[in-house]
Structure formats: C-alpha cells, structure tokens
C-alpha cells in the first residue's frame, strides 16, 4: 500500500471530505436497509402500531415464492425473457439509428430532438399509465377484433408460419416488430451514447480505408464496430438496469402490492431479493461475455 504523508495525505483527506456525503448515504440508506431487508426475507414480520417484531422462519419465504405462490414463477420467466429480447432489440435498434443520425442531412437536429423526446416523456408513471391500464388494453383488443384489422405483420406471419420454417424464431421477431414502439421509446439514451462514440472516431481512418479499397459495409464492421465496442457494454448494462426499474414491470407491482396491500414485508423482501439476485447474475454473465469482445484502441 502507498504511503500517504505530507501533501498526499492532505489531498487524501480532502478527497474523503468530498465523497463523504456518498459514504454516509451509502451506509445509512443502502447497506443498512439491504442487510435489514435480507434479514427480513428470512423472517415473518409482524407490524404493530408500536413497532415491528421479526420471527425467524428460515427459508420459508423463498420456498413459498417458488413452490406455493401461483404466479411468481410465471412472472419471473416472462419478465426475464421479455427483458432479454427487448434489450437485444434496443441495442440493435439504437446502434442502427445512431449510424443514421451520424450522417449529414437536412433536419438532422430536429430528428435528433424527436428521438430524444421519449427519454423525457416516457419515464416514470407516464409509461405506467399508458400500459398498465387494464381497461384500455381490453378495449383496444376488442376494437382490433371487431374491426378485424388486417395488419401487415399478421399477413406476413401467416405466410411465413404456414411455410413451416423456424416458427418459434419468427414468433420472437414478430413480437419485436409488434412492440417496436416499446423499443423505440426505450432507446433514447442509448442512441446518444452511441452517437457520442461515433463522433470520436476520426474521419482519417475511414479515408485511409477507402483509399485501400474498403467499401462502406466493410469499414462499418472493420472500423466502426470495434471502435465503439466498449460502448456496447455500457449500453447493455444501462438497458438492463433501466428495464428493471420500469414502472410497467409485473414483479415490482407484485412486490409493492405484497408490501403495501398485504403488509407482508417478509415475503415482499424475499421476492425482491430473488429478483435482484437473478438480475445481477444476468448482468454479470452477459457483461463478462461482452467484455471479451470489447476492443480497446489505446
């Protein structure tokens, strides 16, 4: 370990002074609640007007989540598969859009402004109001049934599915196409991050490649892709984290319903810990895989 004395020591002290709000906040509002909630997930929490009592019941809450609770398993797999598919779609989409927005054309500033709009308008409750409203959803499906709208994707789907090749894969693709609005509104920040990366690539590289006979397609894979590959990692993590905190998430709804509606704090903690651990594992594994492919220029 380095010796800290003289000026170094003084700088170290001021450094700690600067980050002290974070340290205090982290210990008071992150570490201690986490430990408490971990403890509570092993307990039956009894809330009385005067205070709370925890009765240790071991793994019962976890067992209940996986075996007794009827909807949690289904919700978890549904949410996770939705998360994976949507995240991949968001990455591809935002990379593609960033490539387009990096070109020069008239009205570029306006288009950029529009693409960034969802970051502001579709955050928090507004997203939830639009998608969570069961009433509206039922009306929409009713309208679709009665008017018998023949959408292009449906027609294509019938053609492709009857030909019988890779039905499952097609289903996934069609789900993404049908949910393109979800993908578009979730990729504002990612587009900006990719754009900032694209702008740091010097144009002399492309010129050199062009002189050597590279086509645009080749230079996309040989120059653009490796140069911003580190941003794929950043965006991937951001996308997953963002997805976990969306307000139209079924699991979070269930947790807060258990907590506020049923006053079942122990069970709610267990659910949130399961969800948290699963997400962390997914982030860890996927970012390890992506980081293998990241190319660092300097």
């Amino acid at each position: 370990m380095k010796k800290y004395d003289g000026l170094m020591r003084r700088k170290a002290i001021s450094g700690y002074l600067f980050i002290s709000p974070f340290i205090i906040g982290f210990i008071a509002f992150m570490i201690s609640p986490m430990i408490r909630s971990l403890y509570m997930s092993f307990c039956n929490v009894d809330v009385q007007p005067g205070g709370i009592t925890n009765y240790w019941i071991g793994l019962e809450n976890y067992v209940r989540a996986f075996t007794i609770d009827t909807e949690f398993n289904r919700m978890l797999t549904e949410e996770l598969s939705r998360m994976m598919i949507n995240s991949v779609a968001i990455m591809v989409f935002s990379f593609f859009v960033a490539l387009i927005l990096n070109q020069k054309f008239k009205g570029r500033a306006l288009v950029r402004a529009v693409f960034f709009l969802p970051v502001i308008l579709s955050s928090g409750v507004i997203l939830g109001v639009e998608t969570n409203n069961a009433l509206l959803a039922s009306v929409q499906s009713m309208v679709e049934e009665t008017t018998n709208t023949a959408s292009i994707t449906d027609a294509l789907k019938t053609i492709l599915v009857t030909s019988g090749v890779g039905v499952r894969a097609f289903d996934v693709v069609f789900d993404i196409v049908d949910g393109i609005y979800d993908v578009v509104i979730a990729s504002g920040i990612q587009i900006i991050i990719f754009l900032s990366g694209l702008q740091t690539i010097s144009s002399s590289m492309y010129e050199a490649a062009k002189i050597d006979g590279c086509t645009t397609w080749e230079s996309l894979w040989k120059i653009t892709f490796p140069m911003i590959s580190s941003l794929f990692l950043v965006n991937w993590i951001y996308t997953i984290v963002d997805f976990c905190m969306r307000s139209d998430n079924q699991i979070l709804d269930k947790i807060s319903e258990q907590m506020i509606g049923h006053i079942n704090y122990g069970f709610a903690s267990a659910l949130s810990w399961i969800y948290f651990l699963v997400v962390i594992v997914i982030i860890g594994i996927s970012s390890f895989i992506i980081s293998k492919g990241v190319y660092y220029y300097d």
Binding site: F29, M30, S32, P33, M34, R36, S37, M40, V45, V47, I52, I237, V241, C244, M245, L252, I255, S256, M259, Y265, A268, S269, S272, W273, Y275, F276, V279, I280, I283
Partner: peptide
C-alpha cells in the same frame, strides 16, 4: 445497478 425496489421494504419500515 441495484434496483431501489430491492431495499424498498426495509426503507419503508426504516
């Protein structure tokens, strides 16, 4: 990375 919902139960009581 931690979703705030994970600690929401105990913050609530806290």
């Amino acid at each position: 990375v931690i979703p705030p919902q994970t600690i929401s139960t105990s913050l609530h009581l806290h």
